[in-house]
Nucleic acid binder design. Structure first.
Length: 754
RNA sequence: GGGUUCGUAGCUCAGUUGGUUAGAGCGUUCGCUUGACAUGCGAGAGGUCACAGGUUCGAGUCCUGUCGAGCCCACCA
């Protein structure tokens, strides 16, 4: 044994040893209790970052602990194709070569994207192993696997048949760079310095007495959308403007006549108290428009250019049109003033481009339409016989069938579910699961789809009928034509497929793994992903399997730098887990991520902390070395420790007592997901109780060749290795392998009982 | 605007249902080239637990308010 523990020299071999012995290969043993974690599939488009290391460590601790306790444990590894994000990453790569996705064409783009993703997936899996994650690699799953994909489509078809999937023309979030619709959750709001422009909107009728033109003044941040205005709104209580309600405005530039309406969504305090209403490009205005049955006139196209409704501004980029319009209004004395204004603007979560709200025909999942629950068990579970998808999501949490840890996120979750809107699931992307929707002729396509897919739009005219089936229909159900069938060009929102991951990854509906391990045990993930993902899993899994997908949601916090600052590339404070592993070992990184982190709270990790646990690994190693050398030195037979062993001294009983105490405490902490407290306890015990005190005191007795002290040292040490193993699997297994008293693999040994 | 978390040693954080003298790691001071380990050992300094009230025999912990920081959500034209 070397003087120092060198993780680099052992970690790879130890992982190979585990794999060779199939320690992580889960066996469906009916006598055992199943325990399953379906890993949240990381996006296979970039190397591992510290956040991955965090969740892998927590899941691995859980898995190793339960495995040692004798449960039949499956930690299922997987990867996500990550629709929009991978497409963005890959398009950036193409852009460096001066290409766009349209240069490659859909087929080639998909093929190359797949190649890129599969390659990344393998790199990523190798990194999981470097961290020591005890996954069952024989069951690895990818979201684009054939069987998984098929189930994704079948879920949609079932939703459609239940009347929960529908096509509708709505205001959606449009990313002009990704050229796709986004769900509300894929939009992030950022404060932007902008201006508020005060613009005169002339009334149609002149003043009765003077015969002069009269005006209302609106305040807006988006003058370029004014050609799409279909009303001007004031608050009905606002005495300044009551007399104008019902009058007509003659819109500048396009000279269209629009009404002055009253709606109490208008805040009289803001701006002038007069609002232009543009249902086609603003979500509030859309709602007002629906309420007052206003016309919807869009002026900006999918490529962010002004369209034919924008009069002479046609073809201009929206931003350029804004400048020209302001210039025009100024010239015509219609611009009263402008002032600096800070407001929050939606950005594409993935590529950071400003979102344009746009009216478009898309596919949605209804979260509010109630359906009859036919299954008895599910009726009992939810205690209702009618529920909408949002209740599928909220009731299991309300009824404590799914526990969220830490508890405070439960309120968050339920509030969020309560305000759930219908979910836009169609994306105008190429990378993902293509919608199982077929139209008879190109007249089934939306105008947006026609513009974006000119070739498809030229296909034969049919009756426009819509069919939702997994395979291409041989003929149209309605008109019987055979040559007109075309598939919807859109793909699903990634979260639609990952929302079914818990059951699909296990082989729903007939797989034997599914039957044995579903419902799974714990969903371990970051709190930021609770609404966008966890909620969807509960909804969709319950809808499909009639069971909640897991009984516990454990949420870990964010990993921050040594000063508690958020890590970011621009700040340069990013900790690269792979670099840390190669420098200080995976065990040190794992401990640094776990100790000091309470559930749901962020954790600070810096170099000093990691080094501290590297030192600890070395300490553990050297305690082992000390005992090992003393065992070698002696020629006496060392008895096995047993409570009735003769010659036990007071200090022996005391350290054994201490050991028993921490066994029960650590077990309790791990069962309650208090990883930090458990980790800290074993650290304190091994170093400061066992090594500093008992081991120091044992030196005298070792000189006197007392075999009992060696028996106790060995016993306490090896038992402690078991307790430490879920946290620091490599160093513990490495030493275990060197001890003649230790049998088999530590990773497959049993958790100590007190 | 609503919700939520946090404020404890120089720094980063624990402190589980209220219960002795408030803990850890790192840093720091002093002393140790100790045959397991200097990635180490021994000894020490360092806290009005943000502030002000309240409940209680007893409050870092519970309640109210104030100040400060962060995060999430929302229809900031």
């Amino acid at each position: 044994m070397n003087k120092r523990y060198q993780p680099q020299a052992f970690e790879q071999d130890i992982y190979n040893l585990w794999e060779k012995n199939k320690v992580f290969t889960a066996i469906k043993d009916k006598k055992k209790q199943p325990f399953c974690i379906v890993m949240p599939p990381p996006n296979a488009n970039a190397p591992l970052h510290i956040g991955h290391a965090m969740f892998l460590t927590v899941e691995d601790i859980l898995a190793r602990f339960q495995r040692m306790k004798g449960l039949s444990v499956l930690l299922l590894p997987g990867a996500d194709h990550a629709g929009i994000l991978t497409q963005v990453v890959f398009e950036k790569k193409l852009a460096k070569e001066g290409k766009t996705r349209f240069d490659l064409g859909r087929k080639k783009f998909f093929k190359e994207c797949l190649c890129f993703t599969l390659k990344n997936k393998e790199i990523m899996y190798d990194q999981f192993k470097k961290l020591g994650t005890s996954c069952d690699w024989t069951r690895e799953k990818f979201t684009l696997d054939k069987d998984v994909s098929k189930q994704v489509l079948l879920t949609f078809i079932k939703l459609y048949k239940e009347g929960l999937a529908y096509r509708g023309t709505r205001l959606i979030n449009w990313c002009p760079r990704c050229m796709t619709a986004l769900s509300d959750l894929e939009v992030e709001y950022k404060e932007i310095k902008s201006k508020l422009w005060y613009i005169k909107y002339p009334l149609k009728d002149k003043a009765q007495i003077t015969g002069q033109q009269r005006f209302l003044v609106v305040a807006t941040t988006r003058p370029e959308t004014m050609m799409g205005d279909t009303a001007v709104a004031v608050n009905p209580e606002d005495t300044r403007y009551q007399k104008f309600i019902g009058q007509t405005i003659k819109l500048p530039i396009v000279k269209r006549e629009i009404p002055v309406i009253a709606d109490n969504y208008v805040d009289p305090e803001f701006g002038t108290g007069v609002v232009k209403v543009t249902p086609a490009h603003d979500s509030d205005d859309w709602k007002v428009g629906e309420k007052h049955q206003l016309k919807v006139i869009s002026v900006i196209d999918f490529n962010n250019r002004m369209n034919k409704n924008a009069g002479s501004y046609i073809g201009l980029k929206a931003n350029d049109a804004r400048a020209k319009i302001i210039e025009y209004l100024n010239r015509k004395n219609l611009l009263i003033k402008e002032r600096a204004y800070l407001h929050s603007v939606g950005h594409c979560e993935r590529c950071k481009t400003i979102i344009e709200p746009m009216v478009s025909r898309q596919w949605f999942i209804s979260t509010t339409k109630k359906i009859n629950i036919k299954t008895k068990d599910l009726k009992n579970l939810l205690k209702t016989d009618k529920a909408a998808l949002k209740e599928f999501g909220s009731l299991p949490v309300k009824n404590k069938l799914v526990k969220i840890l830490p508890k405070r996120f439960k309120k968050n979750y339920l509030d969020w579910m309560n305000n759930l809107h219908d979910w836009c699931v169609s994306r105008q992307l190429w990378w993902g699961h293509r919608l199982p929707i077929w139209y008879c002729g190109s007249n089934g396509l939306s105008s947006l789809q026609k513009q974006m897919n000119p070739k498809l739009a030229q296909k034969k005219q049919g009756c426009g009928h819509t069919m939702v089936t997994i395979n291409k229909p041989k003929k149209c159900d309605k008109c019987g034509k055979k040559t007109t069938i075309i598939q919807d060009p859109d793909t699903f929102d990634t979260w639609f497929s990952s929302g079914q991951w818990a059951h699909n990854a296990l082989g729903y509906p007939n797989g034997s793994d599914y039957k044995y391990w579903y419902p799974t045990s714990v969903m371990e993930t970051g709190y930021e992903i609770l609404p966008i993902w966890v909620a969807k899993m509960i909804m969709l899994s319950l809808f499909q399997t009639k069971m909640p997908p897991f009984h516990t949601v454990y949420l870990h916090g964010l990993v921050r730098d040594a000063f508690g600052e958020k890590m970011s590339k621009s700040k340069g404070n990013v900790v690269d887990p792979l670099k840390v592993i190669s420098q200080h070992g995976a065990d040190a990184l794992r401990m640094a991520l776990i100790v000091g982190a309470s559930p749901g709270n962020d954790v600070s990790v810096g170099d000093d902390k990691i080094k501290g646990y590297r030192n600890f690994a070395n300490k553990v190693w050297n305690i082992g070395r000390f005992i090992f050398l003393n065992l070698e030195k002696t020629n006496k037979k060392i008895p096995l420790y047993h409570p009735t062993l003769k010659g036990l001294k007071k200090e022996d009983k005391s350290i054994i007592g201490g050991l028993e105490k921490i066994i029960s405490k650590i077990t309790e902490h791990l069962e309650n997901y208090k990883f930090s407290l458990a980790g800290e306890l074993i650290y304190q015990f091994l170093w400061h109780e066992f090594a500093d005190k008992y081991l120091e005191a044992s030196k005298k007795r070792l000189e006197e060749k007392d075999p009992v002290v060696l028996a106790v040292l060995t016993h306490v040490y090896l038992t402690s290795l078991k307790l430490l193993h879920p946290f620091m699997p490599f160093v513990t297994e490495t030493i275990w392998q060197q001890f003649p008293q230790a049998k088999g693999l530590l990773a497959s040994s049993f958790w100590p009982k007190k």
